[in-house]
Write a protein that binds this DNA or RNA. Structure first.
Lengths: 219, 219
DNA sequence: GTTCAATTTTAGATTACCCTAAAAGTCTAT
DNA sequence: ATAGACTTTTAGGGTAATCTAAAATTGAAC
């Protein structure tokens, strides 16, 4: 059985592999989970003996098939718990992540399957991120970043790329929640800010920081 | 912050203190959590430096005020999670304990308070054990063991003293669930078995093992 | 009150995880 | 192609938790 620490390494390696599209460097892992590079080397060797990662000295780390399966299961657990916390216990999308970080380590596959069913088998978490099914398949969705849209385009907010608390709270304040309908009124090239019509009512200008991190499903 | 291991020791010491009505011996703790006595000595010393237990060499262990508070909070968490597992996810009363053993270690007092409210502030867990409120107060209830009742007495099943899976499954099979109404028809002294009328319908004879472990609220 | 059995503690080791400092390896720029 | 910068690994150690085996203590019986 895996320790919570091992599971956190697996998640970190998965995240880096996905984000960078290549093997995870020792330093990248160390930075992500806030440990010394030497500790990462230790752990990665251990995970390699368990056939969870592929590792060659100084060549970076990738997940094996089994490692990928474990990472996907952890993401599944995390996101399902997030849905529970927000929908049933009234946590906000900026609060749920931290508690889910703990809950995702509960060892019981049956539990997460029952919880999923109890929640109505949601396909996306409170941030709009897809929840893998028990076989590890993600529901894909046609989506673009706001800054890829043109004037006149319409869409619905379906997700966020950045998950920081300040960003999420900013979106709450502007009523840019998941499900909000938007129309791109004007693109300002000089600072890449965007003027929107929100839910057919409010006009709103958002910065490039926002438009680079908001996923929209065009309609 | 306490480790899961430390929390498990606290719970064990609390349980023994309650059950025996006196300080917990090294051996008793070791037996309960399945470790070597030497490990217990080590851990108890550590907990003593944190002012969680009172410890003098070879004199047994008791919880300090703070230790008692922590133990009660753990019991609260455990029992609230049990209610969640049984009522919302359909686990049975013999299955829920093990998963709750893990969930009780999630560190977030707000979480357990929200979960309690979500569940309708239950006062008893699926085994009929009282759930302490956030201040640590248990709801008391007038109850007797079945073997303390006399012929002709009536009551309702409100709890179990033994929590083993075989016992709970036996009770399920006999329909002796929490809330079942019983009347004591006959007491057989020779083997201390008891003949009951169950829910005003079925006649049933149960062994002394059962009558010593079933809590009844007389009516 | 001494002896013997049971309990408890100490001693010494192991494993998982973490660290710092130094050595080794890799990459880039000239 | 080599110097210098950066990355990674090794070496050596620390802490929390565990164990077994041996020593010390406690307490019960005679």
């Amino acid at each position: 059985m895996l320790s919570q620490t091992e599971e956190n390494y697996i998640k970190a390696i998965f995240k880096i592999n996905e984000r960078e599209g290549k093997s995870a460097s020792t330093n990248a892992i160390a930075a992500l989970i806030n440990t010394a590079a030497a500790s990462v080397t230790d752990m990665v060797k251990r995970l390699a003996t368990k056939d969870i990662v592929n590792y060659e000295k100084s060549k970076g780390v990738t997940l094996t098939t089994e490692g990928g399966r474990l990472a996907t299961l952890l993401i599944r657990k995390h996101r399902i718990w997030e849905v529970f916390l927000c929908e049933k216990l009234g946590y906000t999308w900026d609060e749920c992540h931290e508690i889910a970080e703990e809950l995702e380590h509960i060892k019981d596959d049956e539990l997460i399957n029952r919880l999923e069913k109890y929640l109505g088998s949601p396909k996306f978490d409170p941030h709009g991120d897809p929840i893998p099914d028990s076989a590890g398949n993600f529901t894909l969705r046609a989506q673009v970043l706001l800054n890829e849209m043109r004037e006149g385009d319409c869409g619905v907010v379906v997700g966020v790329q950045e998950h920081s608390t300040p960003f999420l709270q900013y979106l709450d304040r502007q009523m840019l929640n998941l499900g909000a309908r938007i129309e791109v009124l004007e693109l300002f090239e000089f600072d890449e800010s965007v003027k929107l019509k929100l839910n057919g009512e409010t006009d709103l200008i958002v910065s490039s920081r926002v438009s680079q991190n908001l996923f929209i499903k065009k309609i």
